[in-house]
Amino acid sequence: MRTRFSSNQTATRIFRSPAMIGWVLFLLGLVANAIVQPTLFKLSVINSNLGLAAPLVMVAIGQTAAVLAGGIDLSVGAIVTLTNVLVVSLCSFHHTGFWLAAILGVAAGIAVGVVNGFIISIVRIPALLVTFAMMSIINGVALAILPQPGGQIPADIYQIYGNTVAGLPFPLLLIIVGVLLWVVFRYRKIGRYLIAVGGAAGSSRANGIPVTKVRFQSYVLSAMFASLAGLFLTAEVSSGDPLIGASYALNSLAAVVLGGTALAGGRGSVSGSVGGALFLILVQNIVYFANVPSYYQTLVSGLIVVMGLATTGVLYARSGKWRLTNGR
């Protein structure tokens, strides 16, 4: 699949790349934010922005895997919450060391993805229904584990998270690690299969691609990134909260679409979603520093996002490569 592009077409390829839109939006947002907030590039400000961005970037990467393969994962927010309450409860109330708690928290998140993947790919119930139901179930489990906000993780963990390592903001390093983790999958068979399966499941199967297995794996990947996001968010807030992940399901989908990935699957890229996620974080800052009256902030930030989505859609339609539905 990669061989379709020869090296002398690199420039065209970048310009036509689905990710392009996400990054253009991000840059536009960055310029607008810098105009209204001159202190934007102070290290402490960059740090605090990235601290909030890292979890959303992670969830968006995972969501991209699910969407590329032609599905959707509405349970990612609940998985973020599950990892958060598990890690904090283990640390605070069961005297587990942080790193063991972290591993168990991520493992629990991945287990949710395994169940999602099994029901969707093997039992063959639509992803929308399965992950929506799973969202309710896991939110309930999180409330049972930690009925009220509380607990804490060791102070040095959140101090490291909010700090710099070798002059670079620590959350930035985590984002880079997350993207690298994705690259590992992208350039193995599974990465190419994801797109093939999302684009045309029938012909993929005819061409010997294990469609069921790929679909299964996409939900495991999505859950894995969501639980890493839960871990990062835990480092950011240093405590547990049974409602903390609620906004991530829709925000991650917005990031994915802003990043130029087709909701129908088969086309898109993770790097675009990263741009989309960063754009969403910047919109918050822009409405604040532009002195938008509080009652209109939700409206204005919503409008900015809708226009971003429209730009994505129309620019893509122009290149004839983006379809809202894939005609099945």
């Binding site: 400000v45 922005n49 807030v237 409602l243 903390i244 918050q284 902030q297």
Partner: peptide
């Protein structure tokens, strides 16, 4: 105003600090 969303409220507090 945050929409009952912890991360949104953190971002607003950080903007107030900044």
């Amino acid at each position: 105003n945050a929409n009952n969303d912890v991360t949104q409220q953190i971002s607003q507090i950080q903007n107030m600090i900044n």
